[in-house]
């Protein structure tokens, strides 16, 4: 059983990284929701090709930006997958195992 921290450390040198992690987690969640929604619309087949291309480029840039930001804060993909206890993980079980 992993040792549980008895309190949350708010060290000045880690608080920036922790805040970055929290913000990136929220952004990553939104990015994945947008991507899922985009894929559903592609599945439905009611989008014109130009719209699909624009969506794809937007999502691709967003993912590139996420990777850069993550590296800036020294975070792994799995670091953004917050454990919600009985609800499972925020980004699903397969998120953050590298892609």
């Amino acid at each position: 059983m992993p040792e549980l921290p008895s309190r949350i450390d708010a060290q000045p040198d880690t608080v920036g990284r922790d805040l970055g992690r929290l913000v990136l987690t929220v952004v990553e969640l939104l990015r994945q929701l947008m991507e899922r929604q985009a894929l559903r619309r592609v599945d439905a087949g009611d989008l014109p090709d130009e719209k699909i291309e624009a969506l794809g480029v937007g999502l691709m840039r967003l993912e590139e930006a996420m990777v850069e930001l993550r590296e800036h804060f020294g975070l792994e993909p799995g670091d953004l997958n917050i454990d919600l206890g009985p609800l499972g993980n925020l980004l699903g079980p397969e998120a953050g195992q590298g892609r």
Partner: peptide, 30 residues
């Protein structure tokens, strides 16, 4: 291994449409 499975064939990727190729790749992953 819940990730292994299904068809592994790469999605047709139009070279001049990187956004579309990206979406198709993500769709195949999903």
């Amino acid at each position: 291994d819940t990730r292994a499975g299904g068809d592994d064939s790469p999605a047709p990727a139009p070279g001049d449409r990187p956004g579309t190729a990206y979406l198709l790749r993500r769709k195949a992953d999903r």
